[in-house]
Design a protein around this nucleic acid. Structure first.
Lengths: 242, 242
DNA sequence: GAGTGGTCTAGACCACTAA
DNA sequence: TAGTGGTCTAGACCACTCG
Protein backbone atom coordinates (compact mmCIF):
# COMPACT_ATOMS: atom_id res chain seq x y z
CA UNK A 1 0.00 0.00 0.00
CA UNK A 2 2.74 2.38 0.99
CA UNK A 3 4.77 2.80 -2.14
CA UNK A 4 7.32 5.39 -1.08
CA UNK A 5 10.40 4.64 -3.07
CA UNK A 6 12.84 5.78 -0.42
CA UNK A 7 11.12 3.68 2.24
CA UNK A 8 11.38 0.60 0.12
CA UNK A 9 15.06 1.21 -0.40
CA UNK A 10 15.47 1.81 3.34
CA UNK A 11 13.62 -1.41 4.16
CA UNK A 12 15.59 -3.36 1.64
CA UNK A 13 18.99 -2.14 2.76
CA UNK A 14 18.30 -2.21 6.51
CA UNK A 15 16.95 -5.74 6.08
CA UNK A 16 20.11 -6.82 4.31
CA UNK A 17 22.20 -5.27 7.07
CA UNK A 18 20.21 -6.93 9.84
CA UNK A 19 20.29 -10.36 8.27
CA UNK A 20 24.01 -10.09 7.67
CA UNK A 21 24.03 -9.77 3.91
CA UNK A 22 25.99 -6.58 4.50
CA UNK A 23 28.14 -7.12 7.57
CA UNK A 24 29.65 -4.58 9.92
CA UNK A 25 32.48 -2.84 8.14
CA UNK A 26 31.20 -3.77 4.68
CA UNK A 27 30.70 -1.14 2.04
CA UNK A 28 27.33 -0.45 0.49
CA UNK A 29 27.09 0.06 -3.28
CA UNK A 30 27.75 3.66 -4.28
CA UNK A 31 24.88 6.09 -4.68
CA UNK A 32 25.21 5.93 -8.44
CA UNK A 33 24.95 2.16 -8.45
CA UNK A 34 21.91 2.30 -6.19
CA UNK A 35 20.36 4.87 -8.51
CA UNK A 36 20.73 2.38 -11.33
CA UNK A 37 19.65 -0.75 -9.52
CA UNK A 38 16.56 0.84 -7.98
CA UNK A 39 15.79 2.99 -10.99
CA UNK A 40 15.25 6.19 -9.00
CA UNK A 41 16.85 9.59 -8.79
CA UNK A 42 19.90 10.24 -6.69
CA UNK A 43 18.09 12.37 -4.11
CA UNK A 44 15.74 9.49 -3.45
CA UNK A 45 18.63 7.12 -2.82
CA UNK A 46 20.23 9.74 -0.61
CA UNK A 47 17.06 10.08 1.43
CA UNK A 48 17.12 6.36 2.17
CA UNK A 49 20.81 6.45 3.04
CA UNK A 50 20.32 9.44 5.34
CA UNK A 51 17.70 7.50 7.24
CA UNK A 52 20.02 4.53 7.56
CA UNK A 53 22.71 6.84 8.90
CA UNK A 54 20.36 8.55 11.36
CA UNK A 55 19.24 5.20 12.70
CA UNK A 56 22.73 3.90 13.22
CA UNK A 57 23.00 1.43 10.36
CA UNK A 58 25.66 3.09 8.26
CA UNK A 59 28.21 5.87 8.25
CA UNK A 60 28.69 7.85 5.07
CA UNK A 61 32.25 8.80 4.23
CA UNK A 62 32.86 11.65 1.88
CA UNK A 63 34.76 10.61 -1.21
CA UNK A 64 34.64 6.97 -0.19
CA UNK A 65 31.23 5.45 0.27
CA UNK A 66 28.86 4.15 2.93
CA UNK A 67 29.99 1.55 5.41
CA UNK A 68 27.92 -0.58 7.75
CA UNK A 69 28.36 0.21 11.44
CA UNK A 70 25.37 -1.75 12.67
CA UNK A 71 26.26 -4.32 15.18
CA UNK A 72 24.08 -7.13 16.37
CA UNK A 73 25.04 -6.70 20.02
CA UNK A 74 23.61 -3.18 19.96
CA UNK A 75 20.22 -4.52 19.11
CA UNK A 76 18.84 -4.74 22.59
CA UNK A 77 16.22 -2.49 24.20
CA UNK A 78 17.46 0.11 21.81
CA UNK A 79 16.55 3.72 22.13
CA UNK A 80 13.86 3.43 19.57
CA UNK A 81 10.20 3.61 20.05
CA UNK A 82 9.19 0.00 19.90
CA UNK A 83 6.69 -1.97 21.89
CA UNK A 84 7.59 -4.75 24.25
CA UNK A 85 6.01 -7.26 21.88
CA UNK A 86 8.28 -6.09 19.11
CA UNK A 87 11.38 -6.34 21.28
CA UNK A 88 10.36 -9.79 22.39
CA UNK A 89 9.78 -10.82 18.84
CA UNK A 90 13.04 -9.46 17.49
CA UNK A 91 15.02 -11.09 20.28
CA UNK A 92 13.09 -14.36 20.41
CA UNK A 93 12.60 -13.88 24.10
CA UNK A 94 10.43 -16.15 26.08
CA UNK A 95 8.58 -13.64 28.17
CA UNK A 96 5.15 -13.83 29.58
CA UNK A 97 2.85 -10.87 30.10
CA UNK A 98 0.35 -10.82 32.94
CA UNK A 99 -2.21 -8.07 33.30
CA UNK A 100 -2.07 -7.28 37.00
CA UNK A 101 -4.64 -4.54 36.92
CA UNK A 102 -6.96 -2.92 34.40
CA UNK A 103 -9.03 -0.04 35.71
CA UNK A 104 -10.51 3.34 34.92
CA UNK A 105 -9.20 6.30 36.90
CA UNK A 106 -9.54 10.07 36.84
CA UNK A 107 -6.77 12.37 35.71
CA UNK A 108 -6.87 14.50 38.84
CA UNK A 109 -5.82 11.51 40.93
CA UNK A 110 -2.65 11.03 38.89
CA UNK A 111 -1.09 14.44 38.75
CA UNK A 112 2.06 13.65 36.81
CA UNK A 113 0.00 11.94 34.14
CA UNK A 114 -2.50 14.78 34.03
CA UNK A 115 0.28 17.27 33.58
CA UNK A 116 2.19 15.30 30.98
CA UNK A 117 -0.87 14.62 28.85
CA UNK A 118 -2.36 18.03 29.55
CA UNK A 119 -5.76 16.82 30.74
CA UNK A 120 -8.74 18.24 32.59
CA UNK A 121 -9.47 17.06 36.14
CA UNK A 122 -12.19 14.61 35.23
CA UNK A 123 -10.76 13.08 32.09
CA UNK A 124 -11.05 9.33 32.35
CA UNK A 125 -7.98 7.20 31.91
CA UNK A 126 -7.30 3.53 31.56
CA UNK A 127 -4.65 2.48 34.00
CA UNK A 128 -3.08 -0.80 32.96
CA UNK A 129 -0.46 -2.59 35.03
CA UNK A 130 1.36 -5.44 33.36
CA UNK A 131 4.19 -7.61 34.61
CA UNK A 132 6.68 -9.18 32.26
CA UNK A 133 8.23 -12.37 33.50
CA UNK A 134 10.54 -15.05 32.26
CA UNK A 135 10.42 -18.58 33.62
CA UNK A 136 11.87 -17.58 36.95
CA UNK A 137 10.57 -14.21 37.92
CA UNK A 138 9.12 -10.82 37.14
CA UNK A 139 11.66 -8.53 35.53
CA UNK A 140 9.58 -5.62 34.35
CA UNK A 141 6.47 -3.90 35.61
CA UNK A 142 4.77 -1.64 33.08
CA UNK A 143 2.14 0.85 34.12
CA UNK A 144 0.35 2.59 31.27
CA UNK A 145 -2.15 5.39 31.22
CA UNK A 146 -4.30 5.94 28.15
CA UNK A 147 -7.02 8.48 27.52
CA UNK A 148 -10.14 6.35 27.65
CA UNK A 149 -12.07 8.22 24.97
CA UNK A 150 -9.27 7.63 22.48
CA UNK A 151 -9.20 3.91 23.01
CA UNK A 152 -12.63 2.46 22.24
CA UNK A 153 -12.75 -1.25 22.84
CA UNK A 154 -9.50 -1.58 24.75
CA UNK A 155 -9.78 -4.48 27.17
CA UNK A 156 -7.73 -6.86 29.25
CA UNK A 157 -7.52 -9.35 26.44
CA UNK A 158 -5.88 -6.79 24.17
CA UNK A 159 -3.64 -5.55 26.96
CA UNK A 160 -2.27 -9.02 27.38
CA UNK A 161 -1.10 -9.02 23.80
CA UNK A 162 0.08 -5.86 22.09
CA UNK A 163 -1.62 -2.57 22.77
CA UNK A 164 0.52 -0.92 20.11
CA UNK A 165 -0.71 -3.35 17.54
CA UNK A 166 -4.26 -2.51 18.50
CA UNK A 167 -3.56 1.21 18.34
CA UNK A 168 -1.89 1.13 14.96
CA UNK A 169 -3.72 -1.64 13.17
CA UNK A 170 -7.21 -1.33 14.62
CA UNK A 171 -7.49 2.30 15.56
CA UNK A 172 -5.30 3.47 12.74
CA UNK A 173 -3.48 5.95 14.95
CA UNK A 174 0.08 6.78 14.08
CA UNK A 175 2.53 6.71 16.96
CA UNK A 176 5.25 9.20 16.24
CA UNK A 177 7.67 10.06 19.03
CA UNK A 178 8.26 9.94 22.74
CA UNK A 179 10.15 11.75 25.42
CA UNK A 180 11.51 9.51 28.10
CA UNK A 181 13.46 9.79 31.31
CA UNK A 182 15.45 7.05 33.01
CA UNK A 183 16.12 7.11 36.73
CA UNK A 184 17.06 4.68 39.47
CA UNK A 185 14.71 4.65 42.38
CA UNK A 186 14.00 2.62 45.49
CA UNK A 187 11.22 0.11 44.97
CA UNK A 188 7.85 0.79 46.52
CA UNK A 189 6.06 -1.83 48.56
CA UNK A 190 3.89 -2.66 45.56
CA UNK A 191 6.98 -3.10 43.44
CA UNK A 192 8.56 -5.43 45.97
CA UNK A 193 5.44 -7.51 46.06
CA UNK A 194 5.27 -7.90 42.29
CA UNK A 195 8.97 -8.49 41.90
CA UNK A 196 8.70 -10.97 44.78
CA UNK A 197 12.07 -9.99 46.09
CA UNK A 198 13.45 -7.71 48.71
CA UNK A 199 16.88 -7.30 47.21
CA UNK A 200 18.02 -5.24 45.41
CA UNK A 201 15.58 -2.60 46.57
CA UNK A 202 16.26 -0.48 43.51
CA UNK A 203 14.40 -0.33 40.23
CA UNK A 204 15.37 1.26 36.95
CA UNK A 205 12.43 3.43 36.03
CA UNK A 206 11.67 4.63 32.52
CA UNK A 207 8.91 7.19 32.24
CA UNK A 208 7.66 8.02 28.76
CA UNK A 209 5.17 10.35 27.23
CA UNK A 210 4.19 9.04 23.83
CA UNK A 211 2.86 11.31 21.08
CA UNK A 212 0.93 10.68 17.90
CA UNK A 213 1.71 11.98 14.45
CA UNK A 214 -0.34 15.10 15.14
CA UNK A 215 1.81 15.80 18.21
CA UNK A 216 -0.94 15.07 20.71
CA UNK A 217 0.20 13.30 23.86
CA UNK A 218 -1.77 10.14 24.34
CA UNK A 219 0.11 7.70 26.51
CA UNK A 220 2.00 7.92 29.76
CA UNK A 221 4.11 4.92 30.59
CA UNK A 222 6.09 3.97 33.67
CA UNK A 223 8.28 0.94 33.12
CA UNK A 224 10.10 -0.44 36.13
CA UNK A 225 12.88 -2.91 35.67
CA UNK A 226 14.77 -5.09 38.08
CA UNK A 227 17.82 -2.87 38.34
CA UNK A 228 20.30 -5.71 38.10
CA UNK A 229 18.75 -6.80 34.80
CA UNK A 230 18.35 -3.38 33.29
CA UNK A 231 20.32 -2.36 30.26
CA UNK A 232 19.47 0.54 28.04
CA UNK A 233 21.33 0.80 24.79
CA UNK A 234 21.47 3.98 22.84
CA UNK A 235 22.83 5.29 19.60
CA UNK A 236 23.36 8.99 19.29
CA UNK A 237 24.90 11.34 16.80
CA UNK A 238 26.75 14.52 17.49
CA UNK A 239 24.45 17.44 16.92
CA UNK A 240 25.40 20.11 14.49
CA UNK A 241 28.33 22.00 15.90
CA UNK A 242 28.93 25.68 16.40
CA UNK B 1 33.64 29.40 7.43
CA UNK B 2 30.88 26.87 7.23
CA UNK B 3 28.35 28.41 4.91
CA UNK B 4 25.86 25.59 4.53
CA UNK B 5 22.55 27.24 3.99
CA UNK B 6 20.49 24.55 5.66
CA UNK B 7 22.72 24.56 8.72
CA UNK B 8 22.30 28.29 9.11
CA UNK B 9 18.55 27.93 8.91
CA UNK B 10 18.70 25.08 11.42
CA UNK B 11 20.84 27.14 13.78
CA UNK B 12 18.60 30.12 13.43
CA UNK B 13 15.35 28.28 14.03
CA UNK B 14 16.62 26.01 16.81
CA UNK B 15 18.07 29.09 18.50
CA UNK B 16 14.75 30.86 18.34
CA UNK B 17 13.03 27.79 19.77
CA UNK B 18 15.51 27.44 22.62
CA UNK B 19 15.37 31.07 23.61
CA UNK B 20 11.59 31.03 23.57
CA UNK B 21 10.97 33.16 20.51
CA UNK B 22 8.98 30.20 19.24
CA UNK B 23 7.37 28.57 22.24
CA UNK B 24 6.10 25.02 22.65
CA UNK B 25 2.92 24.65 20.62
CA UNK B 26 3.70 27.64 18.40
CA UNK B 27 3.64 27.31 14.65
CA UNK B 28 6.68 27.95 12.52
CA UNK B 29 6.30 29.97 9.30
CA UNK B 30 5.30 27.78 6.36
CA UNK B 31 7.94 26.33 4.09
CA UNK B 32 7.05 28.80 1.37
CA UNK B 33 7.50 31.73 3.71
CA UNK B 34 10.84 30.38 4.88
CA UNK B 35 11.87 29.95 1.25
CA UNK B 36 11.19 33.64 0.74
CA UNK B 37 12.71 34.96 3.94
CA UNK B 38 15.91 32.94 3.62
CA UNK B 39 16.10 33.22 -0.15
CA UNK B 40 16.75 29.52 -0.73
CA UNK B 41 15.01 26.67 -2.47
CA UNK B 42 12.30 24.69 -0.85
CA UNK B 43 14.36 21.50 -0.52
CA UNK B 44 16.94 23.43 1.45
CA UNK B 45 14.34 24.71 3.88
CA UNK B 46 12.95 21.20 4.14
CA UNK B 47 16.36 19.81 4.98
CA UNK B 48 16.65 22.20 7.91
CA UNK B 49 13.13 21.38 9.08
CA UNK B 50 13.80 17.64 8.85
CA UNK B 51 16.79 18.08 11.11
CA UNK B 52 14.72 20.04 13.59
CA UNK B 53 12.16 17.25 13.58
CA UNK B 54 14.76 14.52 13.99
CA UNK B 55 16.26 16.31 16.95
CA UNK B 56 12.96 16.79 18.71
CA UNK B 57 12.39 20.50 18.15
CA UNK B 58 9.34 20.39 15.91
CA UNK B 59 6.69 18.10 14.55
CA UNK B 60 5.60 18.56 10.95
CA UNK B 61 1.91 18.15 10.28
CA UNK B 62 0.79 17.42 6.78
CA UNK B 63 -1.50 20.09 5.41
CA UNK B 64 -1.05 22.24 8.49
CA UNK B 65 2.47 23.31 9.25
CA UNK B 66 5.30 22.76 11.70
CA UNK B 67 4.71 23.14 15.41
CA UNK B 68 7.23 23.42 18.20
CA UNK B 69 7.34 20.44 20.57
CA UNK B 70 10.60 21.35 22.30
CA UNK B 71 10.27 21.72 25.95
CA UNK B 72 12.75 23.31 28.27
CA UNK B 73 12.37 20.62 30.94
CA UNK B 74 13.57 18.01 28.48
CA UNK B 75 16.85 19.76 28.13
CA UNK B 76 18.79 17.85 30.72
CA UNK B 77 21.53 15.28 30.07
CA UNK B 78 19.80 14.67 26.79
CA UNK B 79 20.56 11.71 24.62
CA UNK B 80 22.82 13.70 22.44
CA UNK B 81 26.50 13.45 22.11
CA UNK B 82 27.66 16.42 24.09
CA UNK B 83 30.56 16.85 26.43
CA UNK B 84 30.24 17.49 30.10
CA UNK B 85 31.56 21.01 29.61
CA UNK B 86 28.80 21.71 27.13
CA UNK B 87 26.10 20.38 29.45
CA UNK B 88 27.53 22.42 32.29
CA UNK B 89 27.56 25.48 30.14
CA UNK B 90 24.05 25.09 28.77
CA UNK B 91 22.63 24.50 32.23
CA UNK B 92 24.73 27.06 34.07
CA UNK B 93 25.78 24.41 36.50
CA UNK B 94 28.36 25.05 39.12
CA UNK B 95 30.37 21.90 38.79
CA UNK B 96 33.99 21.38 39.44
CA UNK B 97 36.17 18.89 37.58
CA UNK B 98 39.11 17.24 39.30
CA UNK B 99 41.54 15.03 37.45
CA UNK B 100 41.97 12.10 39.82
CA UNK B 101 44.33 10.16 37.61
CA UNK B 102 46.10 10.60 34.28
CA UNK B 103 48.20 7.66 33.15
CA UNK B 104 49.34 5.58 30.22
CA UNK B 105 48.21 1.97 30.09
CA UNK B 106 48.29 -0.92 27.63
CA UNK B 107 45.24 -2.17 25.80
CA UNK B 108 45.74 -5.79 26.86
CA UNK B 109 45.23 -4.82 30.49
CA UNK B 110 41.82 -3.35 29.75
CA UNK B 111 40.07 -6.01 27.76
CA UNK B 112 36.68 -4.38 27.30
CA UNK B 113 38.36 -1.26 25.98
CA UNK B 114 40.62 -3.25 23.71
CA UNK B 115 37.68 -5.07 22.26
CA UNK B 116 35.48 -2.02 21.84
CA UNK B 117 38.18 0.00 20.11
CA UNK B 118 39.57 -3.00 18.27
CA UNK B 119 43.17 -2.61 19.38
CA UNK B 120 46.34 -4.70 19.41
CA UNK B 121 47.70 -5.94 22.74
CA UNK B 122 50.38 -3.29 23.14
CA UNK B 123 48.54 -0.24 21.92
CA UNK B 124 49.09 2.54 24.41
CA UNK B 125 46.11 4.30 25.90
CA UNK B 126 45.60 7.33 28.03
CA UNK B 127 43.44 6.50 31.00
CA UNK B 128 41.92 9.60 32.51
CA UNK B 129 39.79 9.57 35.64
CA UNK B 130 37.88 12.72 36.45
CA UNK B 131 35.43 13.47 39.22
CA UNK B 132 32.66 15.99 38.82
CA UNK B 133 31.53 17.60 42.02
CA UNK B 134 29.20 20.31 43.13
CA UNK B 135 29.71 22.22 46.35
CA UNK B 136 28.81 19.29 48.50
CA UNK B 137 30.07 16.14 46.94
CA UNK B 138 31.18 14.08 43.97
CA UNK B 139 28.27 13.14 41.74
CA UNK B 140 29.96 11.73 38.67
CA UNK B 141 33.13 9.79 38.06
CA UNK B 142 34.25 9.71 34.43
CA UNK B 143 36.88 7.29 33.24
CA UNK B 144 38.08 7.81 29.68
CA UNK B 145 40.38 5.79 27.48
CA UNK B 146 41.94 7.41 24.43
CA UNK B 147 44.36 5.98 21.91
CA UNK B 148 47.58 7.74 22.83
CA UNK B 149 48.94 8.07 19.32
CA UNK B 150 45.81 9.91 18.23
CA UNK B 151 46.04 12.48 20.98
CA UNK B 152 49.37 14.28 20.73
CA UNK B 153 49.81 16.83 23.47
CA UNK B 154 46.94 15.71 25.66
CA UNK B 155 47.77 16.47 29.26
CA UNK B 156 46.25 16.93 32.68
CA UNK B 157 45.72 20.61 32.14
CA UNK B 158 43.58 19.93 29.07
CA UNK B 159 41.77 17.09 30.81
CA UNK B 160 40.70 19.47 33.51
CA UNK B 161 38.95 21.62 30.96
CA UNK B 162 37.33 20.17 27.88
CA UNK B 163 38.92 17.26 26.08
CA UNK B 164 36.27 17.50 23.37
CA UNK B 165 37.21 21.07 22.72
CA UNK B 166 40.82 20.01 22.35
CA UNK B 167 39.89 17.17 20.01
CA UNK B 168 37.70 19.25 17.75
CA UNK B 169 39.39 22.63 17.81
CA UNK B 170 43.02 21.68 18.16
CA UNK B 171 43.26 18.29 16.58
CA UNK B 172 40.56 19.02 14.03
CA UNK B 173 38.98 15.60 14.50
CA UNK B 174 35.27 15.30 13.92
CA UNK B 175 33.33 13.42 16.55
CA UNK B 176 30.39 11.77 14.90
CA UNK B 177 28.42 9.22 16.87
CA UNK B 178 28.45 6.95 19.88
CA UNK B 179 26.91 3.76 21.09
CA UNK B 180 26.16 3.74 24.77
CA UNK B 181 24.76 1.40 27.36
CA UNK B 182 23.24 2.34 30.69
CA UNK B 183 23.27 -0.10 33.58
CA UNK B 184 22.93 -0.08 37.32
CA UNK B 185 25.81 -1.64 39.23
CA UNK B 186 27.23 -1.98 42.73
CA UNK B 187 29.97 0.54 43.42
CA UNK B 188 33.51 -0.71 43.62
CA UNK B 189 35.78 0.18 46.52
CA UNK B 190 37.40 2.86 44.38
CA UNK B 191 34.01 4.29 43.57
CA UNK B 192 33.04 4.41 47.22
CA UNK B 193 36.21 6.20 48.06
CA UNK B 194 35.73 8.86 45.40
CA UNK B 195 32.05 9.30 46.12
CA UNK B 196 33.02 9.43 49.81
CA UNK B 197 29.92 7.63 50.81
CA UNK B 198 28.93 4.10 51.63
CA UNK B 199 25.28 4.51 50.83
CA UNK B 200 23.78 3.99 48.34
CA UNK B 201 26.22 1.32 47.19
CA UNK B 202 24.86 1.46 43.64
CA UNK B 203 25.88 3.60 40.71
CA UNK B 204 24.26 4.34 37.38
CA UNK B 205 26.89 3.47 34.80
CA UNK B 206 27.01 4.74 31.25
CA UNK B 207 29.54 3.11 28.96
CA UNK B 208 30.14 4.71 25.57
CA UNK B 209 32.22 3.99 22.54
CA UNK B 210 32.68 7.18 20.59
CA UNK B 211 33.40 7.22 16.87
CA UNK B 212 34.85 9.83 14.54
CA UNK B 213 33.43 10.95 11.22
CA UNK B 214 35.39 8.21 9.46
CA UNK B 215 33.72 5.60 11.69
CA UNK B 216 36.88 4.76 13.61
CA UNK B 217 36.35 4.10 17.31
CA UNK B 218 38.57 6.37 19.33
CA UNK B 219 37.21 6.81 22.83
CA UNK B 220 35.88 4.50 25.49
CA UNK B 221 34.11 6.20 28.34
CA UNK B 222 32.73 4.91 31.60
CA UNK B 223 30.65 7.45 33.44
CA UNK B 224 29.44 6.55 36.91
CA UNK B 225 26.73 8.57 38.56
CA UNK B 226 25.40 8.65 42.06
CA UNK B 227 22.24 6.64 41.40
CA UNK B 228 19.99 8.97 43.33
CA UNK B 229 21.12 11.88 41.17
CA UNK B 230 21.03 10.13 37.84
CA UNK B 231 18.57 11.12 35.18
CA UNK B 232 18.85 10.29 31.53
CA UNK B 233 16.47 12.02 29.19
CA UNK B 234 15.81 10.77 25.74
CA UNK B 235 13.86 11.71 22.67
CA UNK B 236 13.06 9.01 20.20
CA UNK B 237 11.02 8.67 17.07
CA UNK B 238 9.12 5.66 15.90
CA UNK B 239 11.12 3.88 13.28
CA UNK B 240 9.64 3.28 9.88
CA UNK B 241 6.84 0.78 10.23
CA UNK B 242 6.07 -2.39 8.34
C1' DG C 1 41.53 12.13 -13.10
C1' DA C 2 37.77 9.17 -12.02
C1' DG C 3 34.70 8.14 -8.56
C1' DT C 4 32.55 9.22 -4.30
C1' DG C 5 29.36 11.74 -1.29
C1' DG C 6 27.50 16.91 0.01
C1' DT C 7 24.82 20.86 -1.26
C1' DC C 8 21.51 23.34 -3.82
C1' DT C 9 18.15 24.44 -7.31
C1' DA C 10 13.54 24.75 -9.98
C1' DG C 11 9.91 22.52 -10.90
C1' DA C 12 6.47 18.92 -10.87
C1' DC C 13 2.62 16.30 -8.86
C1' DC C 14 0.42 14.50 -4.85
C1' DA C 15 -2.34 14.15 -0.24
C1' DC C 16 -3.94 16.47 3.41
C1' DT C 17 -6.25 20.44 6.11
C1' DA C 18 -9.00 24.19 6.52
C1' DA C 19 -12.35 27.71 5.64
C1' DT D 1 -10.39 26.07 -3.20
C1' DA D 2 -6.13 27.81 -1.40
C1' DG D 3 -2.46 26.62 1.39
C1' DT D 4 0.32 23.25 3.57
C1' DG D 5 3.73 19.58 3.76
C1' DG D 6 5.48 14.85 1.18
C1' DT D 7 7.72 12.76 -2.68
C1' DC D 8 10.43 12.66 -6.71
C1' DT D 9 13.17 14.20 -10.57
C1' DA D 10 17.27 15.90 -13.49
C1' DG D 11 20.84 18.43 -13.35
C1' DA D 12 24.45 21.39 -11.54
C1' DC D 13 28.71 22.31 -8.95
C1' DC D 14 31.57 21.28 -5.11
C1' DA D 15 35.04 18.82 -1.84
C1' DC D 16 37.01 14.78 -0.84
C1' DT D 17 39.66 10.15 -1.57
C1' DC D 18 42.49 7.23 -4.00
C1' DG D 19 45.40 5.35 -7.36
Amino acid sequence: MNSNKYRKIYQDLSGKIINGEYKEGAQLPSENLLVQSYGVSRETVRKALSLLQTNGYIQKLKGKGSIVIYNQAMNFPVSQLISFEEIKHSLNMDYNTVVESFETVRAKDHKSVQEALNLGDDTELYRVVRSRRDKERVNIIDTDYFIKSMMPGLNEEIAQHSIYDYIEKRLGLLISYSKKAITFEPMTDDDLELFKETMPPYAAVVRSVVHLEDASAFQYNVSKHRASEFKFVDFSRRTIRK
